[in-house]
Design a protein around this nucleic acid. Structure first.
Lengths: 267, 267
DNA sequence: TATTGTAAGTTTGTCGACAATCCGATGATC
DNA sequence: GATCATCGGATTGTCGACAAACTTACAATA
């Protein structure tokens, strides 16, 4: 033990002896899954899109085995659906899903606010700084009229909220819910779009947290999510027509919602 | 259209015309995943257990491909961990996990109670009947001193609660949380065990719901979960020693918690 | 005696291939 | 004229195999 780090003593002295952080090696399946998640968030795999395994595997530069494993993981998260013998399809969100997702978020996020406010002052400051940075990014995106960047900053804002909530499980759920939120936009709107009220709303969120007013934060979040649902469902459900057209050459007269045949069987 | 069901008119008249429930065909991966979940709940795959893929695949009568896909699904749910090149391991719950899981449940289950009470009276009655039946099962199990059956009834009670909560996502989360709850028991105790207070507590839950007292239901649930955490953590953490001994011939001096090397990367 | 280097053995990670299945279209029949 | 049956094409679901990587044990050395 004592001689173990002798050759590195000069370095070891600088930090902690014999306590190196384990190397984070990530498996191929992890990489593929992350890539697929990105693609879903980014919109290059639009809801309802049906891709063949072979084609997708070729694009990713892997064989079908690892791809299929990654697909199963995304399926467990509810982002993908695997219709029997028909490749994989990105889940299309129904109005009911929109309500469910946003309702769930309206229960979770206020709780996250409470937990963040319960943290020691030093950490709270860090969180506020992080959230503030995301809001700034949103403001910049709005000035540049960059809806995509605005949307990404929105996701990162709420991701940060979840990350500081102090529960790994809750953070994981929120991560999935946020991707699903993005899927709601893709499923309901024809094109990617974010409205202007978003930024002032988030400024208010940060202010409420800065004022340590958990109640106000909860009310604001709930109002935001309610408004979001109303906005998404107000759209004259043009469905994910555009997305399907982009990858499928033609869409017959709605044979059956391809991506809702099998539900993930996690009960 | 009109002639479509002509040959079945005699039958069709009895129920609804042209509206058959789709056949629920379940894939091999689904079956394997369900089987693995069962094994975890049942305890035949104890926390920390490390099994080789080939061996497990042989036991299940499938090849390694589908098994690996099912593993990925359980991994996404947080029940399994896949250390690099070391097969698969059932997750061992740490004290922190115990707190996280029960805290999360203490936020979710009161909400489920509120949602159930918000349902129409007819449905409420159905729910109460179902919950009551599970409590009766718990009582029978207690009289027969059958800890295993008591534990299963406990899970089913809370599963029913989740099923009637009206949110598919929440139900899915609860399903996972309940399996993790069971894993907490296996991880903390040496043997499977349930205490006697469990039954009266659940009688009180049902009574609170019958009285449509959501507030009381919430308080009771939270008290129950708090007590459960205290009980689990009070145990002089003998760890999952027993489980490891059963499958591994010998355990060296704790080289490193085998099943906590890789965390599920869902963030 | 403790530690490092080496080697064999085992298991995973990945790939390619085969067969069963399903989809769509064309043609036959009532 | 519409429905049913048949047939090819394409794709999935599953399996077996190979190579790389890791673990473990043993031996050599300081």
């Amino acid at each position: 033990m004592s001689t173990r780090n002798s050759g590195l003593s000069a370095l070891a002295g600088a930090r902690q002896v014999g306590r190196l952080a384990p190397v984070r090696r990530t498996s191929t399946v992890d990489l593929i899954a992350e890539r697929l998640r990105e693609a879903v968030v980014e919109g290059s795999l639009p809801p309802g899109a049906v891709l063949g395994e072979a084609e997708l595997a070729f694009q990713l530069g892997v064989s079908r085995g690892p791809l299929r494993e990654a697909m199963q993981r995304l399926t467990a998260e509810g982002l993908l659906v695997i219709p029997r013998r028909r490749g994989l399809a990105v889940r299309t969100m129904t109005p009911e899903d929109v309500r469910d997702i946003h309702w769930l978020r309206s229960r979770i996020e206020p709780e996250l606010g409470r937990r963040i406010l319960a943290r020691p002052a030093a950490e709270r400051k860090t969180v506020l700084a992080e959230l503030g940075a995301e809001v700034k990014r949103m403001q910049r995106a709005l000035r540049k009229d960059d809806a995509r960047d605005l949307g990404d900053a929105y996701l990162d804002f709420h991701r940060a909220l979840a990350a500081w909530g102090g529960s790994v499980r809750l953070a994981r759920m929120m991560a999935t819910l946020l991707i699903e939120t993005r899927l709601c936009t893709f499923s309901m709107y024809e094109h990617f779009e974010v409205h202007r009220d978003l930024v002032p709303e988030h400024v208010a969120f940060v202010e409420a947290l800065a004022a340590e007013d958990a109640r106000r934060f909860a009310v604001l979040i709930e109002a935001h999510l309610d408004a979001e649902v109303a906005r998404l469902l107000a759209e004259p459900v043009a469905a994910a027509k555009e997305g399907e057209d982009r990858l499928l050459a033609e869409t017959p007269d709605e044979p059956q919602p391809l991506d809702r045949l099998d539900l993930p069987e996690g009960l």
